[in-house]
Design a protein around this nucleic acid. Structure first.
Length: 262
DNA sequence: ATGGTTGGGGTCCAA
């Protein structure tokens, strides 16, 4: 079972390149974030035509929005609201006995200070609530996958310069600490770092503001695929589809995929 | 230290 996550920054604009990636990588389950699309306008048919007939989308006008597109039937699908808001950042399905959660953690604005920046406070609260909620819902013996744009690069080599990004939202110590607490709470396994040594640079996002992104290569690993311990021995391979950053009209994120032997 | 780009919806906000 191949599970792919991608922050697509408008599903209507980029549905054609999602289809390209579906054809290239043949994922069974595709989790998208930042669809920026109300449900009544979701481009359902284009994905149905590709064989992704099982769809769960939860979007809103202009901002946020998540969806799960699958070739495998769901036995269950849910929408979850975090931090008392209804901003379309967390949905889940059950497929082949595995609960798959698609998360879009808030970016958190520019200033890493909860007093000065409500968006940063919201981000930290969101991560805390996820940790508590997953701990409440599951034990480490359950088969669970959590994917998405977490908007946090937790490890030193998840950013191009650890020192220069310590004060930049996405890599500040408080965010890393909170995400790490979430990570440890359910004994999650990092599906990409399972294959990529921690001392090796690894990115999934390059800013639009950086022209010639691949030359400066100032990336961050913001997109993640976590699995619970029973799924660790099932991890078969991973793919960071970096070529997608050079597509015409690219997203600033690239697809991340993990293959599980189930 | 600063500004750089993108998408959506509407002449600005969030990323």
């Amino acid at each position: 079972m191949k599970i792919l996550t991608w922050n697509i920054n408008s599903v209507r604009l980029r549905a054609p390149i999602v289809v390209d990636v579906m054809r290239e990588l043949s994922p069974d389950i595709v989790c998208l974030q930042e669809t920026k699309c109300p449900d009544e306008l979701f481009p359902s048919q284009i994905f149905t035509d590709e064989g992704y007939t099982h769809q769960h989308f939860h979007g809103m006008k202009s901002y946020n929005g998540v969806c799960i597109l699958s070739k495998i039937p769901f036995t269950k699908k849910d929408v979850h609201h975090r931090v008392g808001r209804e901003d379309c950042r967390h949905i889940a399905v059950t497929a082949k006995g595995v609960d798959v959660h698609n998360l879009y953690i808030p970016a958190g604005g520019d200033i890493p200070d909860v007093e000065q920046n409500d968006k940063f406070a919201h981000k930290l609260d969101f991560v805390d609530e996820c940790a508590a909620w997953f701990k409440d819902q599951y034990t480490a013996k359950d088969k669970v996958v959590a994917v998405g744009d977490f908007n946090i690069a937790p490890l030193e080599h998840d950013v191009w310069s650890h020192k220069q990004l310590l004060g930049v939202v996405s890599h500040t110590p408080i965010e890393v600490e909170k995400l790490t607490r979430f990570y440890k709470s359910l004994e999650w396994v990092d599906g990409v770092r399972h294959f990529v040594p921690e001392d090796q640079k690894c990115y999934t996002w390059w800013s639009y503001r950086n022209k010639d992104w691949s030359v400066s290569n100032r990336g961050r690993r913001l997109d993640h695929i976590w699995v619970t311990p029973p799924l660790k021995p099932k991890l078969k391979s991973y793919k960071i589809h970096q070529i997608a950053r050079d597509f015409e009209k690219p997203s600033d994120h690239v697809p991340v995929m993990v293959e599980l032997a189930i």
